[in-house]
Nucleic acid binder design. Sequence first.
DNA 1: GTATAATTCTCATGTAATGAGAATTATGGA
DNA 2: TCCATAATTCTCATTACATGAGAATTATAC
Lengths: 259, 259
Amino acid sequence: MLSLFTAERSAWSAEDAAEQLDVSLSTAYRYFNSLVSCGLLDRIHRNHYVLGPAIIEHDWQIRMADPVLKIAKPVMIDLLRGSDGAATVLLCRLYRQRVMCIHQETNRLNDPISSYERGRPRPMLRGATSKIILAFLPTRTLTNLWRDHRDEIAATGLGATFEDFKATLKVLRRNGFCVSRGEVDAGRIGIAAPIFDGSDRIVGSLSVVLYSTETGDRSINRLAALVVAAAREIVWTIRTEPQAAVDSDTVVIAEQRRA
Amino acid sequence: MLSLFTAERSAWSAEDAAEQLDVSLSTAYRYFNSLVSCGLLDRIHRNHYVLGPAIIEHDWQIRMADPVLKIAKPVMIDLLRGSDGAATVLLCRLYRQRVMCIHQETNRLNDPISSYERGRPRPMLRGATSKIILAFLPTRTLTNLWRDHRDEIAATGLGATFEDFKATLKVLRRNGFCVSRGEVDAGRIGIAAPIFDGSDRIVGSLSVVLYSTETGDRSINRLAALVVAAAREIVWTIRTEPQAAVDSDTVVIAEQRRA
DNA sequence: GTATAATTCTCATGTAATGAGAATTATGGA
DNA sequence: TCCATAATTCTCATTACATGAGAATTATAC
């Protein structure tokens, strides 16, 4: 039911929801009432239901206390310090065949470098942030992607055939990081490294976005190494200390490990 | 189930959840699996469940497309323009006997004036943002608040007896806005006006937070009038044009009405 | 490779959801 | 203030699903 609500359609009537979900009107009202009572939806006006305050509250909770973010944030802040000029560091993840930004740190608050925003779905096939994830996806998933998006894959230059596509990704995989130029936002360079879960499955990526005009090849190489190291640190910490991430001493522990 | 997850306890095991919810272990796993499959929860590690990516995504959707925010944002931006010096404009709402910030606009991105953050629960009894809401709560609700928080209410100076408490709120109500100094954040002044729903029930407030040192009495009076007018505009627009708020021309309509 | 904790599955029992449509309520306009 | 009407809630027979207990299976870390 919650997935009815999107940026394209932020409000629903009970009647429209009933039709969309193929349930009766009274069932739709029941669903709405149930979700309104726990705050996930809100009724702003007669027959207008929207996403509710519990979403906002839980998002704050994630920002404040999510174990993965607790680990990743200080690492991202360090990475930002290691970047010259304007930079944004992104932590993104795979979700629903899209790449979504989970957290960012930037040194340009007043003038955003990147179109990535927390929660915003981004293209799966463009940009270092996404391509480094692609590189580590299982073949089965790539097969599905190829079947559904072959024209777009070809258009991005990732490969005109499935074999080419896989070969391109294999190179990225061997490389361990990905550099892209202007694929999502013009005049930007993205450098990204993969983030894995405890079973070595790809779950996301860590990336830095910079202005092309401020970034030479020497910087790119230096930063790529920093990004890869930072991503590894995040992975390793999550893997070995998931419980510590829940505790309020996490930042201290992470700092000690880095020293 | 979702309400298990708070800033204080961001991760749960199935066993702890089962105990907390007074259900069997297999039922807890079922709940977890159901919520993980729709993205509201995530499993970050063996036996570690946290809030999931759907929350982040839906929060982005709210920020992008919520009908109330679409109406309120331009009004808040205008109000910010009418503020001298450092200022933050807050849109807050009542939720679960707390006041929660829904949106803010500030001219000090690098140096936050206010401890209010989107999604963060704030005190119900301190600060203009909350007190103007209190002023318009039904007596039944005030009675409950008095019963549960009488010492704190007295400590804030709102009233040593229930009658005093109600009298204080009546003054605020008559006033139509509230000014507070340093009640939530030291060295700050807050000026707030109420936001009502379509049936004239209090649902939130619009406020401006400023540095005390930058703000004289003349400014306060001028801004109070601006805040009250802005809040009224928001209320009126939501009430008369809820459908328009969903359409992408909302901002245009709101601008035309103000001209 | 293996012990063990975590997780999934099975099944009998118990509980809740659903749709259709009547009854009630809230709202906006005259 | 009144009233028509859309929105919402309620009722009830029917249908479907949830639950707990505990066995079976899987994943993980050493």
